[in-house]
């Protein structure tokens, strides 16, 4: 690197001085939900392997998966999955050149949040009945 004197200027970007807009928050949440949904997926994968292994292994896995804490992880992951799902649709829209104005990005952020909660409730109803 060239040793260009830069003085003591502050470095850009100084993100911490701004309140993040909804589009930024939902963008970060896309990354977090992508990782967080693994908890529920691994629970389901364990349950599948246990089913393939035999009745005794299945009984243990099934008890854990269908305990209240198991359902908590499953529904939490279902929400993460649906949020990531809707955000993925938004990314495909971005790639197509849609929803790129500030107002559209703001509105789409609320659609992600409300839509993911609604889809999770539908999933919960499907799982319980």
């Amino acid at each position: 690197m060239a040793d260009i004197p830069r003085g003591n200027r502050p470095l850009s970007p100084h993100l911490t001085v701004y309140r993040l807009p909804m589009a930024a928050i939902t963008s970060i949440m896309t990354r977090i939900t992508g990782q967080a949904m693994l908890a529920g997926l691994l629970l389901i994968v364990w349950w599948l392997v246990a089913a393939a292994t035999g009745p005794r292994a299945f009984a243990t896995a099934d008890w854990v998966v269908r305990s209240w804490i198991g359902y908590l992880v499953l529904f939490g992951s279902a929400w993460a999955l649906w949020f990531h799902f809707l955000s993925g649709i938004r990314h495909l829209c971005y790639d197509a050149g849609l929803l790129l104005t500030r107002d559209d990005a703001q509105r789409a952020s609320w659609v992600l949040i409300i839509g993911s909660v609604v889809l999770t409730l539908i999933t919960a109803i499907l799982f319980v009945f």
């Binding site: 389901i44 299945f58 279902a78 993925g88 495909l92 499907l126 799982f127």
Partner: peptide, 24 residues
Amino acid sequence: SSVALLILTPAFIFVVASALGLPH
């Protein structure tokens, strides 16, 4: 892969929802 998962995610949710709670 994201377009594929748009189709596969609802299908997978239905599959798991149908199987969860059944005996071994």
